[in-house]
Amino acid sequence: MKIAIASGKGGTGKTTLATALAQAAAQPVQLLDCDVEEPNAHIFVKPQWTNHKDATIAIPVLDTTRCTNCGKCGELCQFNAIVTIANQTMIFSDLCHSCGGCVLVCPEKALQEQPKTIGYIDTGHSGEITFIKGTLVIGEAMSPPVIRQVKKTAAADQLTIIDCPPGTSCPMMTAVNGSDFVLLVTEPTPFGLHDLKLAVETLRSMDIPFAVVVNRAGCGDDKVDHYCRNEQISLLLQIKDDRRVATAYSRGDGLLSALPELATQLRSLLTEIEKRINQAQGQTQGGGTQ
């Protein structure tokens, strides 16, 4: 069972919820930090690190002794990452999406691929949690390949909770892609509602079942409730606005250290999600598995 924790707006409490869910699960669980631009779930999980590896993409390198500067590679490349100008061929590896097209098209076999490190994947443990964190190298632009490699590092058949990047574009979609269920965390403010709507539309277009969790309930207005009711979206949990949570968070302590009583609610939330996933899969496959 793969559950992604996402939100349109940043700072609504994705990481807080993702780590608390993993800690409350009371079973072996994988927690993936896919917010690779600003990963910080480790601050709350405090894992014992056991493995470190590079996240790489393959980028072309040019053998100038073979290149005839015919320009075919540049014609194919959609990202201006390889160009032939004034009888000279140049590669701009920061722009390369690693599609491999130039290598295939080159008639002189002048291009070969080499790995380039654009991030890191760290694995660690804390209690029953296997924690996998992706980190984008600073100055690198493309986070989706790092996110994909975090997800590939995880075992397929275990309860998995994914802390997603904010927003609704490529990084967020890469992180939620392939999940069985998404929890959208929002806050009851105009910004929270506006960005929630975008996230809902995105998940609908991807056809992934989801529900909403309202964090800092009571700090704003009730328009998020109204919206969910009108759109027939389940609002599965409300976490009340509590300065104890904010203070604990500021120190790097999680939700459960401020509100331990929430653990039972979080476990029922996991059970409820499992039930919904099984129902959804039962509908499409005529019999669901985990």
Binding site: E37, E38, N40, I43, Y249, S250
Partner: peptide, 16 residues
């Protein structure tokens, strides 16, 4: 913001 996460993320932004 004055949180562990805020500081962690700020330092990455400053490196950028």
């Amino acid at each position: 913001e004055p949180t562990c996460s805020g500081k962690h993320d700020l330092l990455r932004v400053l490196e950028l």
